[in-house]
Design a protein around this nucleic acid. Structure first.
Lengths: 210, 210
DNA sequence: GATTTTGCATACACAAATATACACCAAGAA
DNA sequence: TTCTTGGTGTATATTTGTGTATGCAAAATC
């Protein structure tokens, strides 16, 4: 339905995605220039502009760019059904978690992982507090949005304006969020019963290294 | 309607909050500089000023900064705020109960459980002398620090340099600390009237095993 | 075949935003 | 005093997005 993207634009999109995975944010014009081995920032800027014109990228108020759509699986041959899931970056204080300001990119995820009537989002895990549950620094975590959860679920909660991934333990009067780390410096978080679960982790996508 | 905060400002707010939770006070300009990996205090000061201009920070008369964002975050249902509460280990003889030597760890507790002007601490219950009140060996007990209590309160008292959790019964002339245990070997403790209450139990967190 | 156009990369420049170095002064502590 | 800590002013440096001009090869046009 959309404009065709050229090879160069596709290469730029890949570079942006890789940069996003590695650094947790989208690159600046000059950073993208280096990723694409250009010698002048103009080259990268021109490609960025054409992608913005094609509505594939968006430019936020502060100048940073945002991936509106990106196909995660490269090969078109296996025409698997996908849905676009927002990848959330830093959570802005006071805003709902899915506010547009928080969205770094839209990423296509197989409908086998994200089932249609439910709402999902993706987060990039920070730190190693969940490494015993195989969630490591930089991994993408697929989260199903729901505000109830049970003991033992790996949940996402907004604690002090930060998206936190922890194991939930519910008792009579209160709730404990447990880190699952071999690093013993992580302490549990103790909450009242009526705190707000943002969603539960349904899948993880290990970090891509190059 | 609300001024947009840039990525850098957001990072600064996070650093301020982290510092606040770790040290119990807001950072100075130079401390914030270190947290944000800047090389000149000016860089941090500029960001602070822009946050003050946007009414997200406030500067108190003594020069220290204040996060006013938290206030209008309280009634927003999206995020849960916490305070760091000290977990006390073995109580060292002769020292005030909250002396640094006694603190094992700082644990994040919801502000719904630990309300802001009051002081709190956490203790790990030993033995089973209170198991009828659902305080069992190894449970964490959230205690509000105060030196007065009423009959029926579950209190923490320092008896023989040991933190003791008991139910308080006040009579005319004396004070009785009652154990609440199905194990009948625990006997009440009878004290003169002017013993010192350290605090009253406001919540219990059952023991977590991994 | 010669010339022009087109697409793209490069070089350079410039303004605005950011970061740094350095300095000064005030307040407290030793 | 002297030393340290902390806030802030000034000048300079760096980063970043973007504008303009140039070079160059392939395609299009004459």
């Amino acid at each position: 339905m959309q404009n065709q993207v050229s090879n160069k634009e596709l290469a730029a999109l890949r570079a942006i995605r890789d940069f996003l995975m590695k650094n947790g944010r989208t690159p600046s014009v000059r950073e993208l220039m280096k990723e694409l081995d250009y010698k002048s920032p103009r080259s990268a800027a021109v490609i960025l502009q054409s992608l913005i014109d094609k509505n594939i990228l968006n430019k936020k108020e502060d100048g940073s760019i945002q991936l509106i759509q990106y196909e995660f699986n490269e090969d078109e041959t296996t025409s698997e059904q996908t849905v676009k899931i927002p990848l959330l970056g830093a959570i802005a204080c006071g805003l709902p978690i899915l506010a547009e300001e928080n969205i770094e990119a839209m990423i296509a995820v197989s409908t086998r992982l994200a089932k249609s009537p439910d709402k999902y989002f993706l987060l990039q895990a920070k730190g190693n507090s969940m490494n015993q549950k195989d969630i490591n620094d930089g991994d993408l975590v697929l989260v199903k949005q729901q505000n109830s959860a049970e003991t033992g679920d790996i949940i996402v909660a907004l604690i002090d304006d930060e998206a936190t991934i922890k194991e939930l333990r519910v008792n009579n009067n209160n709730v404990v969020l447990l880190p699952q780390s071999s690093d013993k410096s992580h302490t549990p978080i103790i909450l009242s019963h009526d705190f707000i679960t943002q969603g539960i982790v349904v899948s993880t996508i290990p970090k891509i290294d190059n």
